[in-house]
Structure formats: C-alpha cells, structure tokens
Design a protein around this nucleic acid. Structure first.
Lengths: 238, 238
DNA sequence: AAAATAATCGAACATGGATTAGATAAATGG
DNA sequence: CCATTTATCTAATCCATGTTCGATTATTTT
C-alpha cells in the first residue's frame, strides 16, 4: 500500500507458505532421455508450464492495458484457466508483475551484454554500439511482451514495486554508459557529448519504438539499421 | 465497452442533458471591468474554475498512475471536493480522460506550429526544426501533465478512446513530415532519410524525455539543446 | 433579502475486483 | 491400481469503484 491502500495494489504480505507459491519454479527433470531435450511434457512439472503460460498471458495484457486495467480474470482467461487457480502459482497480482518486469529487463540486459561481448574486436567501439542497438531492438520485439510491459509501465508503478527493480535498471544503464564513455575516450564520439543524457536519449528513442514500429511495414533489421543511422549521424546532411 | 465490458471503461452513454455537463465550458464574462483581465473570480463562472481544477488534478494523477489506477475519489480529493460533485461537471470518467488527452495534444500542436511560423526566414529549415524541437519539449514540461498523460497513456487506452483523438495526432505528425520533407528537398537532410520513420524516431525520443528528464539536474533549455544536437548530428564524431 | 439557480455534499447502489477456502479432478509413484 | 500429491475449479468474501440522486448550501439575480 503505497498510494493509499485502495489502488488495486495488494499489500504483498510476504510469503505465507501453505500452498507452495513459486516453489514450482524450480525445474524438475524426471528422466534424462536424450542428451538435450526440449522443455516439453515429461521434462518439466506441469505446474511450471502453467506458470509460464500465466506469465505470458499477464505480460501481454499488462503491456496492452496497463497493470491496474488488467484483471486476474482476464489473465486467467488468456491462460486458459480460472482466476482462483492462479493463486496456486503466485501469491498475488503484484508477484506476477514483479516477475514479468524482472524477466523483461533481464532479457534485454543479457542479450545486449552478449551482443557486445560477441564483437571480435575489443577496440571497435562503433561496431559494439551498433551491435548493442540491434540487440536491444531485437529483444524488444522478440521477448516482446515482457520487455514492453517493463518499459511501458515502469514509471506508472508505485514506488514500492519500482524499487525492487531499481538495481537491475541501473546496472543496464551503467553498461551503456561505460561503453559510450570508452568510445568517446577512443575518439569515436563527439568530445562534448554528455554521456548520461545521451544514453538516456538513445535508450529512450529505442524503447519508444514499441509505440510505433509496425513490423508489417518493414523488417526489424531495417528498423534497427535506421535507428543506428539516426543515432550515429543524425539527420543533418553536412 | 471495447475490451470486454468489465474493464473499468464506462459505456459512455452519450449526453443525457439533465445537469448540464460541459455546458459550463463556455466562458461567461459578466462585466468587462478593464480591457484585459486575468481569468479570475468575477470574470468566469465558478463552475468553469472548478472544472479546470478537476482537469488539472485528473491530468496529474492519470499521468502518474494511469487511467484505471486513478480513482475519481482521488481526483476529487486532489481537486478539493467530493467524488459525486465531479458529475456536475463531467458525464463520466471517460469524458474527463477525453478532455485531458485533447488539451494535451492540442497544446503541443499549437505551440509547435506557432514556433515554426515564428521563424523569420521561411527557407531556413534547420532553424525551424530546432525551434520545433524546443517548442515541443517546452510544452511537454510546461503544460506538463496534460501532454504527458497523453503521451504516456495513449497506447494503453481502448481503441474507442484512441479513435477520438486519432485525427489530431495524425495532423501533428503530418506537420512534422512536411517540415522534414521540405528540409530534405532543400538539401539540409540526408537524402536517404526516410521521413516517416525519422519523424517517429525524433518525436519518440523527445516524448520519452518525460520518463527521465529531471529539471533539478539541468535546465529545460539545456535539455532541448542537447536533444537538437543529438537529432541533428548524432553521436559519432567524424 | 427573497427567489431562483448553480454547485456541492452525502449516502447509497450495483458491479466487478483481488483473494480465500474447500471440494474435486489429474497426475504421479509405488 | 491404489494412495498421495499436485493442480484446478467453484463459490464465497470483502472491499473499492463508477455512478446516481435527493438534500443542502452557495451564488447570483431581481
């Protein structure tokens, strides 16, 4: 209860273990039939599969309508079960939101870090920046709902929830700052560029693409290329 | 009822005139004391003043928490009256949202158009673009809540509400497209620049500043200058 | 200042929301 | 295939929300 106690945010009464919310999140492998297997029936507790279904449904609806506007009955509907059943898997609506947010941001973070590290040349900062932009956008539209939900809703969430994700957000920002700073030191970027606002501007412009990009018009690759171009050289010609 | 009928969106039963919702929106001047006077007591129906207070309160809360998460009781509270009284001024929560959205976008539109037209040199497209960016940002943080509410929430609103504001949005976009296109024809912009995505990118990056700009760090002017620089020449140095 | 109108209140209503608990069905393990 | 555990459903609870409406108080007009 941050705003007043009547805002649809539940109190998040910490884990009362009775039905084991979240415990099922540990993947239980029953038999290792072949070497690697798809996360399918028999390999994973049913509970775990349902849990994922719920999260997917929730992410999708949260992103589309916002947190409060999304009903647990809607989520249940989308996931193909009844509202009450959700509580076998999650302790509260808040908890679902938490996990959606975390999943989304983490996906971006990991993907971008990987893309950066995948660059052969450790000194080719421009290539790294471009790889990061591509990765960020790709994950934005691939892991879609989780990331978008995070991006779209973060600032509308009550402080309490925000704080739980503050650290990870900061880490991601820092990663970019370091990259940009290195690039600047190496002379690739304008020397008068203020790193932090620049990073905020860049990530903002990328994040906002979820509000307007329409993949039926042109490919994700094309979008990424254009974004890189705009970020790199701007619009002016000379 | 767009989503399902249980989403907190009222049915918007068109104007049943009994108490005259919205009629009070016509400003009634009682006596013209001096030539020009501030919109103050005695010049404007009390109803009109209260109406504005409600809109301000609503815009602020909508922007912060989102539409559904904002209660009419909250709005009333913020505006200093009781929830029921709101219905003397507005027919429904939807109607308030409508007016907030409209006010916000219109403010940006007018301000930017004015800024553009204020440029002495009709051919100096770069100056015009820069003036527009400054104006957009200025209004974004001045008329604040209305504009931000619009920007932040638009895509989360049900189609029905969105459609009512579609035209104005399109008009604003067109204005930018025309400006950019002229600038490009005159050779000021990269010739390979795709206008529409570029405009979306630019406006997006500007709009997103509401999510991160902190006016205690540096001035709005400084922000605008930096944004112009990034948009114009990008981050790369050569 | 009385009469008429405008604006606000206060208490209700109906609905739908998150959450709970007990019954029931499905899956699992021996 | 029975016993146990796991997962889902149904129905109920409690509470907040948008909205209504008659009563009440301000404000204006005559």
């Amino acid at each position: 209860m941050i705003w007043k106690g009547t805002y649809g945010w539940s109190k998040h009464t910490s884990l009362d273990v009775k039905k084991r919310h979240g415990e099922a999140s540990r993947i239980v492998i029953k038999k290792v039939q072949s070497d690697v297997m798809q996360d399918d029936k028999n390999t994973v507790r049913k509970s775990e599969r349902t849990r994922q279904t719920i999260l997917n449904a929730a992410a999708k609806l949260f992103k589309e309508r916002g947190y409060t506007a999304t009903t647990l009955r809607d989520v249940a509907d989308e996931a193909g079960l009844k509202a009450g059943s959700i509580y076998y898997h999650f302790a509260s609506k808040d908890e679902i939101m938490d996990e959606v947010l975390d999943t989304g941001l983490r996906a971006v973070y990991e993907a971008v870090k990987a893309a950066k590290n995948a660059c052969d040349d450790d000194e080719n900062y421009l290539a790294m920046i471009e790889a990061c932009v591509h990765a960020h956008l790709k994950v934005l539209f691939t892991q879609g709902d989780f990331v978008s939900a995070n991006i779209r809703l973060y600032n509308q969430l009550p402080k309490e929830i925000q704080e739980r994700h503050h650290t990870l957000r900061r880490e991601y920002g820092n990663m970019w700052d370091t990259l940009l700073l290195n690039a600047q030191k190496a002379g690739f970027l304008h020397s008068d560029l203020e790193i932090v606002p620049a990073r905020q501007f860049i990530l903002g412009s990328l994040n906002w693409t979820v509000e307007w990009y329409d993949d039926s018009k042109y490919s994700l690759e094309a979008l990424a290329t254009r974004c890189v171009s705009l970020i790199a050289r701007g619009i002016y010609s000379n």
